[in-house]
């Protein structure tokens, strides 16, 4: 039996606490913020590493993006991934979720056999959550989204709790399959100094369009079914506030008079 392979889809995103928005020019200043792995993807990675710790195998992190996304893949290696692959090239730039999913699915096929694909429920910049399920559909494998707990790790089957239909469902999925995870699923481990040192020296494989046999007409701005026609950066919506500064008793009293909130019940 070959060792199982776990693939983690990971994206480099700006640290959202630091990004600056130019409300007058209507643009995002991406260079204003340090880059980091998408926080949800770290939960996905942690889950892959846990699987590996329980059943053996290899964890492969795949990202698509500019050259500097290598640092995110090195970060993934420090946190337990065995290998990092970066899809990179001008043809990929400007891809929407459909084109991105197509590229990632080609990369997964190129990597060989794969047992489970792990993805975050969404990214904090694009915020679509579409890439995971689109990859699963393209690869013709099942998926479970919004996984908040992995309850059983098997070689042929995974059992998870999934948040959907306003409830939690315990589901089993035959493998190969894909899951997208929420923040509830685990607490990602912090890499040790030694892990970071090791990861710094790791080689990241870079693949271009020829390596994954994809038609460039399906990629980038030209290949994407959707395009951004324009973008607004609306100033944050401030409200007309009534500020009460008296002692608590009076302030609360005034508030409740304004609100007419059920003191009668």
């Amino acid at each position: 039996m070959p060792e199982p392979t776990y693939i983690v889809l990971i994206k480099q995103v700006p640290d959202m606490d630091e990004v600056e928005f130019d409300y007058e020019e209507g643009r995002v200043d991406r260079s204003s913020a340090p880059l980091e792995p998408n926080p949800f993807d770290l939960n996905a990675l942690e889950e892959a590493v846990k699987y590996k710790e329980e059943l053996g195998g290899e964890v492969l992190a795949i990202s698509m993006g500019p050259k500097q996304a290598e640092s995110t893949l090195k970060d993934a290696i420090a946190r337990g991934a065995d290998e990092g692959i970066l899809l990179h090239g001008r043809e990929f730039a400007g891809s929407d979720t459909w084109a991105t999913s197509l590229a990632l699915a080609h990369a997964i096929e190129t990597a060989g056999s794969c047992d489970i694909i792990f993805a975050g429920e969404k990214t904090v910049d694009g915020d679509t959550g579409q890439v995971g399920p689109e990859v699963a559909e393209y690869l013709d494998i099942p998926h479970v989204a919004f996984v908040s707990d992995v309850t059983k790790r098997g070689e042929k089957e995974i059992q998870v709790e999934s948040e959907t239909w306003g409830a939690t469902y315990l589901k089993s999925m035959n493998l190969p399959g894909l899951i997208t995870v929420t923040k509830d699923v685990n607490e990602p481990r912090l890499p040790s100094f030694k892990d970071k040192q090791r990861a710094r020296k790791a080689e990241i494989t870079t693949w271009g369009i020829d390596d994954i046999s994809i038609d460039p007409d399906n990629l980038g701005v030209t290949g994407s079914p959707t395009r951004v026609a324009n973008m607004e950066v609306p100033p944050p919506e401030e409200r007309e506030s009534l500020i009460l500064r008296e002692d608590p008793g009076n302030s609360v009293n005034q508030l409740l008079e304004k609100l007419d909130l059920g003191r009668e019940n």
């Binding site: 679509t128 579409q130 699963a136 919004f146 079914p225």
Partner: peptide, 23 residues
Amino acid sequence: ATNFGRSLAPRVAMALDTSLTAD
């Protein structure tokens, strides 16, 4: 764009090879 909708729609869009805008 419920959890179910956000999980279902991408599969439908990919199956039909067509566009999908989230949320």
